[in-house]
Amino acid sequence: MLADVIPVIDRLNLTFQKDNVNPSTIKPMVESTTHMLTQLLDTPGDNEREFSNSLQGATFNTTTLTHLHNRGQYERVRREFIQGLIDALRRRFPQTEVTILSALATVFDVERYPGADRLAGYGQAEMDVLRRHYTAVINPERAQRNFLPFKTAVTNYGATSFDTVCRCVIRQLYDQFPDFGELAKIALVIPVSSVYAERGFSVQNLIKTKGRNRLNEDRVNRLMMLRWHSKSLRDFDIGSARENFLTTKTRRK
């Protein structure tokens, strides 16, 4: 069973193990994963069927399976396990949040924009979702009026990644389209990728080793911040740092 389930979950995990995850990929991947798990809930996968067909009585590859007679219990546990995965996915990716992510992707993923002849109506349903959800952040009426001019303006960015478009909107178009600037800020801070969390654990493991296992949480956090954000030694200006240290009036004794 696990041989059938794990590849399905792995495909979803790989979606998030990228620096720049496009939110437009999340909804179809979650729906696809849920659908495949639902199929496994009712119908055994290829590996499980192969295992069942290879059984000779209660023996598999010369190994006697002592609990094989309790097939009903196995089926119950199997269904509970897969249903638990499906429920966990639905809790982790609520429909409302996934819909908002998809709407943001539609607005800011310029690569998906249609031609000029169909641009006017493109993304209107998704824009309505964002206008309703972020009424405390944007002016819904102004955002609607500016939607087509905004789309026309960002088409100049051409084949540009989702993150890059959001940053360009904030830096270059915020004064013209403040509502979309705010939406771009929201889109950039939604924690979609798991890359930074995984890198954080890697940095932590480099700092808090077996030989330094008495480091407290605050010290580890500070060292991680230095490791993550500081310049490399090749770029570090020691002379400037020394002068800054000597001219600092308040020092801890």
Rank of each mutant, 00 (worst) to 15 (best):
E80A: 10
I100L: 01
V165L: 01
V129D: 10
I6W: 13
G123Q: 00
D128P: 10
A241G: 02
R252S: 11
N53K: 14
G181L: 05
D175R: 12
V77E: 14
L119Y: 00
E182M: 15
D109L: 07
D179R: 04
R145M: 14
H35V: 09
G115I: 05
P149Q: 09
S193F: 02
R234I: 11
D163Y: 14
L226Y: 11
S52N: 09
I26F: 12
E126S: 02
R78T: 01
F93R: 01
R171E: 00
L183H: 05
T33D: 09
D10G: 02
Y134V: 11
Y174K: 15
M29W: 08
H67V: 14
A103E: 00
G211T: 15
V21P: 03
N216S: 01
R227C: 15
A125P: 01
V154R: 04
A58P: 13
L130W: 00
R145C: 08
D19S: 13
S232R: 12
H229P: 04
A153S: 15
K208D: 00
F150T: 00
Q95P: 07
V30H: 03
N139K: 10
I100N: 03
F180R: 04
L14G: 11
Q172E: 03
R171I: 08
L148P: 06
V107C: 07
K253D: 09
T135R: 12
A120C: 06
Y196L: 15
G115N: 06
T250Y: 15
F147A: 01
A116F: 06
E111Y: 11
L188Q: 01
T155V: 14
G57V: 12
P191Q: 02
A241L: 08
T209K: 06
E126N: 03
E48P: 08
D46N: 13
T250I: 14
Q17A: 02
T247D: 07
T248A: 07
D42K: 11
F177C: 01
L65K: 05
E75A: 02
R167V: 01
C166A: 10
R112C: 07
R79T: 08
V192I: 11
R242I: 15
H67G: 14
Y174G: 08
L41K: 01
G239T: 08
T155G: 07
D163G: 07
H35I: 13
E126M: 02
T135H: 08
N13I: 13
G72H: 14
D4M: 06
N22S: 05
M36A: 13
I238P: 06
R214P: 02
Q56P: 08
Y157L: 10
L12E: 04
I82A: 01
L2K: 14
T248Y: 04
R112L: 08
Y74G: 00
G57M: 11
N205V: 11
G115P: 05
L119P: 07
A143N: 04
A159F: 05
A187H: 05
F236I: 08
A88W: 11
T59M: 15
F81V: 09
I82C: 03
F108H: 02
G181D: 09
D163L: 09
G115H: 01
F108W: 06
D237I: 06
F147V: 02
F236T: 06
V21K: 05
